[in-house]
Design a protein around this nucleic acid. Structure first.
Lengths: 232, 232
DNA sequence: ATGCGAGGATTGTGGAACAATCCACAGATA
DNA sequence: TATCTGTGGATTGTTCCACAATCCTCGCAT
């Protein structure tokens, strides 16, 4: 039966099924715990420096201590948590040296990725991020501006087409959120970069990747300087 | 008593003590297990695709299953192991897409780092790696040639001065060792790059970072091509 | 050959136990 | 008073055990 299903449409259907796999084969508990903690930390519910007692978290989430510890290992690898032997794990409180380190890495990643160019759909994704940011600014949604800004920079790295670089960028941006939570910077911090983002995006859309890469360097240097300024 | 100890010499002594801390405050068991497994995997004792049963490993190392699982989480984050739900963890068997991904990342990292230049002592470290490789070649030590080669490329990334990039590079080189173990490539594979390394290093020593960066691109492309060739 | 079901092995997860370590606080000493 | 010491309580590091869920194998029936 169902002979009307061509082989072509069936393979498409199977692919769609595969995408829904996450709902069928539920992720392991430790991973879900890690995701939950990552979320809360990024939101700033656990401020940098907070202690995360194993038992409190395990009973709050209704999982065993073992599972919590596995999640801790994962988040420590992301540098979101730091483990102090026999004292416990704490939300990382990145200091100036970390910010400097991250910006060195970002200059390599973002500039290199942009200079190499990338497919049209990613440039389109960059445009979406920029417009999202602009829209959020006019609506006065401070938080959304920051999110859109991070999204934009993530797309820049995505141009390189490397899952490994994407992951590193994601981790570093999560670290940067910790920095932002630790150092109250001016509410218009991200907003002032939106116009530069727009300009950069125009260069990408024009296929002028070299110019975009060149423009990115002072952009990132300025950003680093301002973050360091408001951090100390 | 002991008044002959000047404040100066005492602080020196304390500093020396601090350097020995690793022997006093021993690393957590899970970390040592992860290190041990990383070592063995890199050496090729567990070929790509091998299954690592929790119980077998826990009793082989004399640690509990929980501890082994914590180590697994760490190594999975390094992409050295892959977890198949309810089936166990296996040594990763990187396929062509992973190799392509890694070389995309390496082109960004290495070229970007070299173009930015770096301090003298790192250039000197690069020289050491090159000479080590040359010496190993004349002695016919195939394994040592590969090690020196990887060391050289790690130093290149180190020029950028970012611990985060260093870590990513270390992880990717460990992945590459898996690739090498999976695909028997010609014994002189690494040897043929030593002369290019030497040439690159000369450019670095001359402070000609731009030229070195430019020379690195075809280098990496050729390397990627040869690896892919012998992989399929 | 294909499908089905039972049995055994391994993972996923929880829970308890205990030594090691750290922390806070009280008491002792100079 | 200030510093040292020691004690008790709390938390981590680690092991061990239990058990459900899942997978694999193999034999059997269709």
């Amino acid at each position: 039966m169902m002979e009307t299903n061509s082989v072509r449409s069936q393979s498409a259907a199977l692919r769609a099924l595969g995408d829904a796999r996450v709902r069928v084969f539920q992720l392991p508990t430790a991973v879900r715990v890690a995701d939950a903690l990552r979320e809360q930390i990024s939101e700033g519910l656990f401020p940098p420096g907070s202690r995360l007692p194993e038992e409190a978290i395990s009973e709050a989430l209704g999982v065993s201590r073992n599972t919590v510890r596995e999640a801790f290992v994962e988040l420590t690898g992301d540098r979101l948590l730091v483990r102090e032997p026999n004292r416990g794990v704490f939300v990382a409180a990145p200091e100036a040296s970390a910010v400097i380190d991250i910006y060195r890495a970002r200059r390599i990643l973002e500039v290199g990725a942009v200079r190499g160019g990338g497919p049209r759909d990613l440039v389109a994704a960059a445009r979406v991020a920029v417009d999202d940011g602009l829209a959020a600014r006019t609506r006065g949604e401070v938080e959304a501006v920051g999110t859109a800004n991070q999204h934009f920079h993530r797309v820049l790295v995505a141009l390189a087409g490397s899952a490994r670089l994407d992951r590193l960028m994601r981790q570093m941006l999560a670290e940067m959120r910790l920095v932002f939570h630790a150092s109250k910077l001016p509410v218009d911090f991200h907003q002032r970069y939106l116009d530069v983002n727009d300009e950069l995006c125009r260069l990408l859309e024009a296929g002028n990747f070299e110019a975009a890469a060149d423009a990115l360097v002072p952009y990132l240097e300025r950003s680093e300087g301002e973050v360091l300024q408001s951090t100390r």
